[in-house]
Design a protein around this nucleic acid. Structure first.
Lengths: 305, 305
DNA sequence: CGTTTTTCATCAGATAATCTTATCACGGCA
DNA sequence: TGCCGTGATAAGATTATCTGATGAAAAACG
């Protein structure tokens, strides 16, 4: 074990992830033979086969299975070493990999990236937009530094700090303007349009209507983005909910009408989360303040417009 | 942080440990310029100076100080990776680094190494003989796989399993043969010869005589080994205690007399300890059984002789 | 106060590790 | 059977790393 190299670990990780020599090699930016050789050498060093090469597929042996999480841990530690170095300057700079859920990203990011970019030159921001479970997984794996999601996440390994709370508003066809706002339970009996499964906002909306999320869903019509939802409402297909932050952008070019609910107002809390062990904590707190400011700014602008 | 290498980590660790380029390089088995270059490259990669090169000494910067434990963790993880591989075979083989306290090593090791070596060829045993605190430190650092010390160690990160309990016997000049055995407290008033500070056996002996170990010690005469102690007794300088296991070897060529104490008999429990996280657990349990057998054998032989 | 010694940095050339391109061997599949 | 697509292997090119010689700067010595 004296001659293993990090390179071998990185290649191992890639191969374990892709289960395919050529693709893993490509991901590593090397040729397939180079990967083959390094893997072979690693196996020699370890003294056991790590991968089972069936003609059809490449997968971890049971021993490799035991090996992989340790390798990942090591690689993550090294990644965090870099974070530590970056953090040492106290200064906000270097790579920052941030994940954002799809029902927040399009509205928050333009403002946020603008303000972060101008106030902290030298901050290299990578954004990943996908649904919460995937974001949390990537966070755990060390492939993200932080994520903006709806709280709570209930992940004990993560710190979560709230950023802002946003209400949901009712969106109806323009012809419904002035009609009374239905009670939450009444929504169940109407044509409520929802995001497709996996979006936390879908669950939050259902929960507001007192629909058990786990129950076999009635055949709601489903869309893949808030923008589509509004277009469907506009076409008179039904009604939907929108998080406040999306209202300005999404309803601008549609002839739909927007109404607030009375109490209890439906809402969700958006927050920022990161690994408790992350050495970037100080930086991330700074970032979170920038996010909060951006959200504030956005709310003011929306209210004004 | 994408181009760091384990090699650089190992060199970093060595330099941090030795605080001296030439000696660290020597420890790594490379030339001093090679070390300089790799360290420089690591610093470049990290983006910060890790060492402060005073003309007089090389020491970690405050940032390097933060860096070092993480590096050590990583190196230890990799070491354990090797252990895991070895352990996977269930078979007892590969490198085994074992530490033993000085008042046990000379008596136990000949038998033990013999039995381990013959029964488990392919087991590459490295023995380290030094005092308990150092053994425990090296165990924590991952520089030892296991240690044989007096229990308890009170280290929560270690597993300890008892091997055997040995009594202490009184050793007096041959002319004292037949005299009554003094009570423990009486020993305080006699010329009791002890090992020098740091040996756990010294503390155990003092404790038996109800001397507070922390109290300013009376001017006991001190020796650096049990062998020396017996020679001093032989020369009529005083009396001493010996752990049973040492009696056979140490009193053979001396004209001293050995007497057992009445109840309560002084004694200590010798045990084996290792990191709870060690993947070698199964192997170490096997080893511990071998040790217990060796000790048994030794006791029988001593009783016979 | 000059000289010697010690220490780390730097450089050029030698050596070893790693990569690429070309090619093979094997099994699935039409 | 002949054609993919797969991973393994081989030879030569490239890159990383090491050594040995040397330099500069400070400390130790006489």
């Amino acid at each position: 074990m004296k001659n293993v190299t990090l390179r071998q670990f990185r290649y191992f990780e890639a191969l374990a992830r892709h289960g395919h020599f050529r693709r893993a090699a490509e991901a590593c930016g090397i040729s397939q033979p180079a990967l083959s050789m390094q893997i072979k050498e690693l196996e020699q060093e370890v003294g056991t086969e790590l991968f089972e090469r069936n003609a059809r597929q490449v997968r971890l042996t049971s021993f490799g299975e035991e090996f992989a999480p340790r390798i990942r841990d090591i690689l993550r530690s090294i990644d965090e070493l870099g974070d530590l170095a970056r953090a040492s300057g106290e200064r906000l700079m270097g790579r920052l990999r941030i994940g954002v859920i799809p029902t927040v990203a399009p509205y928050l990011l333009p403002t946020l990236l603008g303000s972060l970019g101008s106030r902290h030159a030298g901050l290299d921001i990578h954004v990943r937009e996908t649904q919460t479970p995937r974001l949390l997984q990537e966070l755990e794996d060390g492939r993200l530094d932080t994520a903006i999601v709806a709280l709570p996440t209930s992940e004990p390994s993560l710190i979560e700090i709230p950023l802002f709370t946003e209400s949901f508003v009712l969106v109806r066809p323009g012809t419904d303007a002035g009609k009374p706002v239905p009670a939450p339970d009444a929504l169940r009996e109407m044509r409520l349009l929802l995001l497709e499964e996996g979006h936390c906002f879908r669950d939050q909306a259902l929960s507001f209507c007192h629909v058990d999320v786990r129950a076999t869903p009635r055949d709601f019509l489903e869309a893949s983005s808030l923008s589509t939802l509004v277009q469907m409402v506009d076409a008179g297909i039904g009604i939907t909910l929108l998080p406040e932050m999306a209202v300005g952008v999404e309803t601008r070019s549609a002839s739909v009408c927007v109404a607030r609910f009375g109490n209890p107002q439906p809402s969700r809390t958006i927050g920022m989360v990161w690994r408790k062990t992350s050495p970037l904590t100080k930086q991330l707190v700074q970032i979170s303040e920038a996010v909060r400011t951006s959200a504030e700014l956005l709310r003011e602008r929306t209210a004004a417009g």
